[in-house]
Design a protein around this nucleic acid. Structure first.
Lengths: 236, 236
DNA sequence: CGTCCAGTTGATGTAAATCAAACCCAGTGG
DNA sequence: CCACTGGGTTTGATTTACATCAACTGGACG
């Protein structure tokens, strides 16, 4: 058969996670829920190490502090789809019922805060505020997921990449600098957008030569024509 | 450009919905929440009429009683993606925040129960049970959505159709008969699976001639080799 | 009986996949 | 300090699954 992603991908050793100090930093104000910040423990995850695997019982929620995490699903023959990337500030695993339905791996060396699920769930039972917050997160993710389904089902490679780059840029607002870090590999991007590494590459160079973006290095991005990119991402 | 779904799709008249008796039938036991059954009003929706449009403020939740409903998103140039089909018993719009992010239309003449959102939301604030039920629904939908993202991003037409048919069959368990009704058109299926009408058609005949399914009419389906279909759907 | 529309089948075109080969670092070790 | 290595990236040639274009079928309906 002729189809994407026939690389074979195996479980890497899970041992690369190590628990550090139990008292996390307070990034007050940003989170709806100051309480949460007192409940987690900081975990370091090395590049390509897993936070959890598909099928694992969902005992923890996570929040990214630094670095990037990808959540992905695999087919038996090795085809992979990355459902989403998580950057600093993003929550992971909130949507889990009893078991995780995706594997979560670090894109690069990352630090995350880990929350015991039973504690959070207990909190939810008492505080409708926390419950609403979680529900809101999940609803937002579902909405994103549907937008991405439209993308995967109906958009061209150009449109997909434009959409992706805009989303990443919007989410990794460093504010100061307009050069955006792009921690994931071309193959990660491909597996996220339903394309091959090669097609992602070609589309990058195409967007570059059309003057829509600039990429000083493979992991740095600069958006030059925001308007044109947005039009592409809308399917224009 | 050469891409899918360049049919032009316009807003049909919304007027085809009519409110009927305010007292809905009790299908007791099936729902976690007997209370809900006393709160909705039954609405009849004609084929292709909309329950709501993308962008409408989300004032109601819905549950399908009979018939089928599709929820879809449109691109400016008419490309369409059907995010999901809803059959008898399914809830619609539970994931909405303030506005609906998809349009919901009847696939065929359908009856749905309509719940006032503010009433349900008030209920959620008081009863954690109801809240958990809603959260569970949304999480399950998100999980489904991700599975479908894998499908759209990485699977062949054969695999997509096999997966779709199995899912529909599992959900429309009439129990008695093994011929499953398929209310949607080939074009609906195409827009759901990221394929064209023609490809859906060809894939149907292909699965038929391979003896995996039988289709006495375009809107009736019989699964012959469940195993083989499941293998396909798993990407085997 | 014509019109219409969903479905089907065939011929042809093309975007993106596959196959293949450089290239470009960042490490590593002699 | 430089050769060697290996993973990610890039570019080119070729193939292919599916889209597009086009024509025909058959049932529903006035």
């Amino acid at each position: 058969m002729l189809r994407a992603g026939h690389r074979r991908i195996e479980r890497s050793f899970c041992a690369a996670t190590t628990v550090a100090e139990p008292d996390p930093p307070h990034d007050a104000g940003e989170s709806e829920l100051g309480i949460l910040d007192t409940l987690g423990s900081v975990v370091l995850v090395r590049r390509d190490a897993a936070l959890f695997y598909e099928g694992d019982s969902a005992d923890y929620y996570y929040k990214v502090v630094s670095g990037a995490v990808r959540s992905c699903k695999l087919l038996a023959d090795g085809r992979r789809h990355i459902t989403d990337f998580f950057l600093a500030g993003d929550f992971i695993g909130v949507e889990a019922l009893d078991t995780h339905r995706c594997t979560a791996e670090a894109v690069n060396d990352a630090t995350v805060v880990r929350y015991e699920r039973r504690i959070i769930d207990a909190l939810v039972s008492r505080s409708p505020r926390v419950g609403k917050f979680l529900l809101g997160r999940v609803c937002a993710e579902l909405s994103e997921a549907r937008t991405r389904m439209l993308l995967l089902g109906r958009m061209s490679a150009r449109e997909r990449l434009a959409s992706f780059l805009l989303r990443i840029a919007a989410r990794s607002r460093r504010g100061d600098c307009d050069t955006i870090p792009l921690p994931m590999t071309r193959s990660d991007i491909g597996d996220h957008l339903g394309l091959t590494t090669e097609t992602v590459c070609r589309t990058f160079t195409q967007l570059k030569s059309d003057g829509l973006i600039d990429a000083p290095s493979p992991h740095e991005l600069r958006l030059l024509k925001h308007q044109a990119l947005a039009a592409l991402a809308q399917g224009g």
